[in-house]
Simulated scan of single mutants.
Amino acid sequence: MLKIENSKKLPSVQENSEPLIRVEEETPRIFVKPIYYLQRIPHSLKSLYLREGAYARLKQAVRLLPENYSFILYDGYRPLQVQQFLFTQFSKQLKKQYPFFTEEEIVKETRKFVAFPSLGNEYLAPHLTGGAIDLTLGDLHGNALDLGTAFDELNEKSATRYFEQHTDENNIACLHRRLLYNCMTMADFTNYAEEWWHYDFHNTAWARRVDAQHASYGAIEAKIQDYQVKEYRYL
């Protein structure tokens, strides 16, 4: 999910028209658990989709894992309707957590955890490109390991480096986050610092972190049928 990490202008998009690929459990160490479909969020997908290049990098990352670990994939390409639903849902949750916040403060806090549902290149939500992935570490049976918080948990402990800075709280979670981070970044993904589970490749969020002038993945609009991508076009 995109959040605004600083005021620097985002890179431009030079769409390379790389295809959107359905991720298969073709290796015993990749498990697909489409979390928003399982939560019955409207317009969500029951399969996980990534750009071809991001999928190739993911398979490279899993080969870097020690043999007794796996990846559990929660989300990849995300339709705009799901992005809109999540932004509204998280805003409501934060209003309950911070009842004295102004509307402006709620929007600002929400954007730490959920991208504004925008298709514009200025603040393009990364999951709309097929170049973002949410994942965690698992064992060889696809059981999620301890990474310190639940996926999508809205608090400071979700920040990737939280346990690096609070070493006495959860050493196991710290080691697991470090392993996930190292394998993904060695495969050329970048991490969003407020969420240990979110990684980007070749979208504007990725380009901004690596100081690239251009991103290769722009927004994708998909036609959804039976909770699968039937067809899509580049915007």
Rank of each mutant, 00 (worst) to 15 (best):
I30Y: 02
A132L: 14
L45K: 07
E15F: 06
E194H: 11
G142F: 07
N182M: 07
A205L: 08
D134Q: 07
P126C: 10
Q228Y: 14
Y162T: 05
V229Y: 02
T160E: 09
H214W: 11
V229H: 05
L147F: 10
Q60G: 05
L45Q: 04
R63C: 06
H127S: 15
L10S: 05
Q225E: 15
K59M: 12
F100Q: 15
K46P: 12
I72Y: 02
S70H: 05
P19M: 07
N155V: 02
S91G: 10
V107D: 14
Q213E: 13
I4F: 07
R177A: 03
Y49T: 09
L48D: 05
S47Y: 10
Y162R: 07
L45T: 06
P66I: 10
R233L: 12
T102D: 12
E5L: 10
I30N: 01
W196R: 00
T129L: 02
P34E: 05
N182W: 02
D188T: 13
G218M: 09
R208Q: 11
T185E: 08
S44A: 11
K112Q: 12
T88K: 15
H141L: 10
K59S: 06
F90K: 12
I172H: 04
K112D: 04
A159T: 03
H43G: 02
F189Y: 13
F116R: 11
E103D: 15
I172T: 14
S12L: 10
I35G: 02
L147T: 04
F31T: 01
D188S: 14
